[in-house]
Write a protein that binds this DNA or RNA. Structure first.
Lengths: 234, 234
DNA sequence: CGCGAGCTTGACGTTGTTCAACTAGAGTGG
DNA sequence: CCACTCTAGTTGAACAACGTCAAGCTCGCG
């Protein structure tokens, strides 16, 4: 453990990817202004980083951890739009649009997040087109991910959706065939758009058939080929 | 009928909303360059304006008509992301992202479309931040619409989805409680994410219950309140 | 007149949700 | 140290929703 990790400010700003990217487009002095208007925070599992319906005063740069984007409908049912791991720029769908957050972002494991003042960032970006373009590029990937996820939801049945969710988590979040979920079964069901029981039934079927090794929160992909096939045929 | 409508170029560029907006941000001379690099086209029902997977060389400004955004998956099943009427700037999700169209745009009734050269527009926008911001604002609304549509898909069952589709068409496309569909039942089913038969069953149930008057392609909302209630409760 | 595309209907089987009962582990207080 | 309770996970059965299939209908067009 390095000394800095015992402090609340785990990451030194000098190592920050957002700073590195930003400084390709502006003078360090200008970035320093931005830095001073920002705050680094730690969120525990379950804590809300950005709240649906609240004023979008900040953009969040996720330094460390995994978050879920979720939408809560009128009947208080949640839908997980997508799940993203650090490093990522989140909540930026509002840069050029509404001033109100369209969805919530919640930590699904302990996260380090830098909250960046939206007004100042917007001001800087408006005078710096190449930077603006870069920000938009960083920020809109999440939309594309969500749309792909929804297309899956609309067309496949639960088998295929669960397969997709597992493959997504393995490939894009945990980057391993063997991982320990920080999500509950309920959250999995909100991601896959089905009931918790259905998630459980499907996972144990996959386990029985030797496609996955499921033991509580630990999941291992035992037969990736078969899993991919299930994902394809829906 | 004005004389100009007998020609292929139905709309005079001087009446064009896109020109009006653009000229708030640039000199007419500059816009003229853009105009010269653009072409006004007419599309019949069913014709493809932008093709999924093709190079995104043009942005399209829809002058007149109604289009659908659709995504074709690996198994050649279509999903309609959203439906939009003129005036609208379409296909711009690529301005700051990929060079390949992520989805297709197809005319669902006769359309007048101005195809704008993407490379030149991008060049101009990169030197003109306020214009860039405006373009992005015009272009990203469609994403939000799609996401809302998908959230509906994931959470409601067919009753609620069909109700949503009808309300959406009435409120946002045809702007009337009585309208004549230019969509087939199959297209409705691709929008609602269910089978054609299910669309038909549900429409005739709504008809029987006095919520809608359905007669072939003609649909009238007879009891908007009840329809909205069905949409809410799913 | 006959053909074909889009539409409609009802029957049937599959899929998925809901419900209720049960288990396991973690935290709490006597 | 052991009840207790609370939450997450699990299982199976009953029921509702939905897709598929098969058949027939309607309307426009050659």
């Amino acid at each position: 453990m390095s000394r800095s990790e015992t402090h609340s400010k785990v990451y030194n700003c000098d190592d920050c990817l957002f700073q590195q990217i930003s400084c390709q487009f502006m003078e360090p002095a200008q970035f320093n202004m931005l830095r001073k208007a920002s705050a680094q925070l730690r969120f525990n599992k379950g804590e809300t980083i950005l709240k649906q319906g609240a004023q979008a005063t900040h953009l969040a740069f996720l330094q460390k951890g995994v978050v879920k984007f979720q939408y809560e409908d009128e009947r208080a049912r949640n839908l997980i739009l997508t799940i993203t791991k650090a490093p990522a720029l989140i909540g930026g769908s509002n840069i050029f649009n509404d001033s109100v957050n369209f969805f919530s972002v919640q930590a699904v494991e302990e996260c380090e997040v830098c909250m960046i003042d939206m007004a100042m960032l917007k001001e800087i970006a408006q005078m710096n087109n190449r930077y603006l373009m870069k920000l938009l590029e960083l920020v809109t990937g999440m939309f594309r991910e969500s749309v792909i996820n929804f297309i899956t939801l609309a067309h496949k049945q639960v088998n295929g959706r669960i397969a997709d969710v597992i493959l997504y988590l393995s490939d894009s979040v945990y980057n391993s065939d063997l991982f320990t979920l920080t999500l509950t079964r309920k959250e999995l069901s909100e991601f896959a758009g089905c009931s918790t029981e259905n998630v459980i039934h499907t996972l144990s079927r996959f386990h029985r058939e030797g496609i996955l090794n499921v033991k509580g929160k630990s999941i291992e992909i035992a037969d990736r080929e078969r899993l991919q096939k299930i994902s394809k045929i829906g």
